[in-house]
Amino acid sequence: MADMKDLADAIIKGDMKTAVEVTKKALDEGVEPQKVLNDGLVAGMGVIGKRFKANEVYIPEVLIAARAMKSAMEVLEPKLTEAGVEPVGKALIGTVQGDLHDIGKNLVIMMLKGNGFEVVDAGVDVSPDAFVEKARSSGAKLIGLSALLTTTMPAMEKTIQALRNAGVEAKIMIGGAPITQAYSDKIQADGYAPDAASAVDLAMDLVVA
């Protein structure tokens, strides 16, 4: 019988082949898709996430685990849809207008995906209007804005204003080297995360709570 602990262990080790095999086996044996997701995949990612926060492992190991989860999800997703199970949340993440820095944004995207979010990558140098358009077309419940330059920080405020003026109700979180909680409060973002790992916690708080 498929053991959810084996599935979680496969995710932790980044063992894509075993993760897919155990997922298939579990579904064939009639295990609830939600249980496979929560007790196997998310549980495994939870362990790797804790190890990352404790500085025991590095991002490449988190990414290997996330790839194993992605492969297993390809098997699981149709069953989740059939069962009416929704992803944790849908997020739209991008770097604001005038700014080309994307490694921070990409790390947040990887971490969110690894934690069960569906993520739309808006790219870099994204204008406020483009954010509004992508927010509408994606239906994202969470929007993440990134900036690395002091001279592109004001574009964050403009983007938030544009989103609010357009009636977009998604929660908005911000981050990047020059950003602070005080700035987040000033421009009325819903939250600020100082790094990629905290961005996942914040996203969970904003979307799930």
């Binding site: 002091t150 001279t151 004001p154």
Partner: peptide, 8 residues
């Protein structure tokens, strides 16, 4: 040096 937070 660089600029403080401001729009160009």
């Amino acid at each position: 040096f660089t600029l403080p937070m401001m729009t160009i």
